[in-house]
Nucleic acid binder design. Structure first.
Lengths: 220, 220
DNA sequence: TGCTGATAACCCGCCGGTCAGTTATAAGAC
DNA sequence: GTCTTATAACTGACCGGCGGGTTATCAGCA
C-alpha cells in the first residue's frame, strides 16, 4: 500500500489532500480493528502524520468516522439512482441487473466496510445510521418497491406485498456476504457470489417448487 | 472444610444466583450502550453489587460477554435440533415451520440481542464468532441443507444448489429484522413478521413470476 | 521576518482490575 | 436464646495505563 521511503520530505503535499489520506488510513484501521480499538495515533502514523496534525483537519475522533461514512455515501447513492429509473415492461431483467451490480460492489472490502462500520457503531453514534438511511436506503428501497409494484400492475409478477418483497429480493445476498464476513462460512468453491445470484434469481422468479417450465435469468 | 449437611446451601447469601444476575444486568446494558461503553461498575450497580464483587464471579470483563453468549447458545441450539430431524416427504412444510419458529424467537429483544452482540464485537473477540458458529450455525445450516437436498432427490424441489439455497430461505428474515433493528425501517403496520414470512414463503415456493397463464393485465 | 504545516511532549479523565478491610451468615458452646 | 468464632460475601478506595485532546515550539518557505 504505502511505501515508506527513508528520504521523506517533511512538508509534502498541500493541505488539500490530507483529509482524504487520513480517511483512507482510518478506514483501513477501522476494518482491521474496529473504531474503539483504533487510536488516533495509529491513524496518524498510517497516514504519515503525527497525532497533532490530525486535529488540524478533524475536530475529534468521532468526526473522522462521520466524514468517512459521508464520503462513502456519495458514490453509492449516485450509482443506485441511474439503474432503475426509467424502465418499461418486465421488471425481472432490471432486478437481475441490480442484484449483480450490488453483488459486485459488495465484493470490494472497502465498500462492504462502510455498512459494517455503520452497524457496529450505531449504538454509540446514532447519527451514522440516520445518515446511511437517509442517503442510501431511503433512495434505493422505494425504487425497488416501485419496480415490484409496477411489475404486479402490468401482470409480470405475482400479487405480493411490494414492501416485504424487497426483503426477499436482496436478503439472501446480504446474508451471504454477512456469513462470509463474520463467520467465514462460504461455499466450498469460495465466495462464488455470481453463483449465489444465479441460484437465488432462479428461485426468486420461478420458485423453489417442482420443475415446471423453468427459465434461465442469467445474463452473463 | 467441614461439610455435614445434606442440604445443599452451604453458606450462602445469594451466591448461587449471582452469576446469572450479573449476566442479566450485563445483557441489558450491552443492548443499551454496547460492550465498550458499558463499565463494569455499571453492570455491578444494576445487579445490585459493587464492582469488586463482579470479580468474585468473573475473571475479567471479557469473560462476562463470553459467558453471556455461551449461556444464550444452549437453548437456541437445542430448539433447532428437534424440529428438522426426522422427516419424510415434501420438505416445504418443515421449512415453513422452521421459518415461523425462527421469526417468533427473533421477535424477543433478549434473543436477537445475542447475534447482534456477536456481530458487533466479533472484531475484538473472535472467540465469540467461533462459539456462535460452532454451537449454532454448524448445527442448523447443514440440517437445512440436507432438507433441501433430500427434497431435490425426491422430486419435490427444483434442481438448486442446497448450500446457496439456504441463504435464499432465511436471508429475507434476517434482513427484515436487521433493517428494523438498525434503521427503524418497518412496514407501515409495524414489524409484521408473520406477514413477511407468508409473503416470503409464497415467493420462495412458487416464484415471483405471475402464475402460468394468468399473466393478466390489472384485474381489480 | 512572518506565515503555515507539522510535531512531540504533555495533560488529564476514564476505566479495568486489585486488595485490605467490613459485614452478613451460620454453626457450635453453654 | 446469646455469645463466640469462622469464613463466605461483599465493599469501596485505590492504582496504573491508556488514549483523546492541547500547546509550545520548530522547520521550511517566500
Amino acid at each position: 500500500m504505502h511505501e515508506r521511503s527513508t528520504r521523506v520530505p517533511k512538508f509534502r503535499r498541500r493541505a488539500e489532500a490530507r483529509p482524504d489520506e487520513v480517511l483512507d488510513a482510518a478506514l483501513d484501521l477501522f476494518i482491521e480493528q474496529g473504531y474503539a480499538a483504533t487510536r488516533v495515533e495509529d491513524i496518524a502514523r498510517r497516514a504519515g502524520l503525527s497525532k497533532g496534525a490530525i486535529y488540524l483537519y478533524f475536530p475529534s475522533k468521532e468526526a473522522i468516522i462521520e466524514a468517512l461514512v459521508r464520503r462513502a455515501l456519495v458514490p453509492i447513492a449516485r450509482t443506485a439512482l441511474g439503474v432503475i429509473g426509467a424502465w418499461e415492461g418486465d421488471p425481472r431483467p432490471v432486478i437481475a441487473t441490480v442484484m449483480k451490480t450490488l453483488a459486485t460492489r459488495l465484493d470490494d472490502p472497502r465498500v462492504i466496510a462502510i455498512p459494517k462500520l455503520v452497524f457496529r457503531e450505531v449504538v454509540s453514534f446514532p447519527e451514522l445510521a440516520r445518515m446511511y438511511r437517509r442517503e442510501v436506503l431511503d433512495e434505493v428501497i422505494p425504487m425497488l418497491e416501485a419496480l415490484v409494484r409496477r411489475g404486479i400492475e402490468e401482470g409480470y409478477l405475482r400479487q405480493v406485498d411490494p414492501h416485504l418483497t424487497v426483503r426477499s429480493i436482496v436478503g439472501p445476498v446480504v446474508l451471504h456476504v454477512a456469513m462470509a464476513e463474520i463467520f467465514g462460512i462460504t461455499p466450498p468453491e469460495g465466495l462464488a457470489i455470481d453463483r449465489l445470484i444465479d441460484n437465488h434469481l432462479t428461485i426468486l422468479f420461478d420458485g423453489l417448487g417442482a420443475p415446471q417450465g423453468s427459465r434461465q435469468w442469467t445474463s452473463s
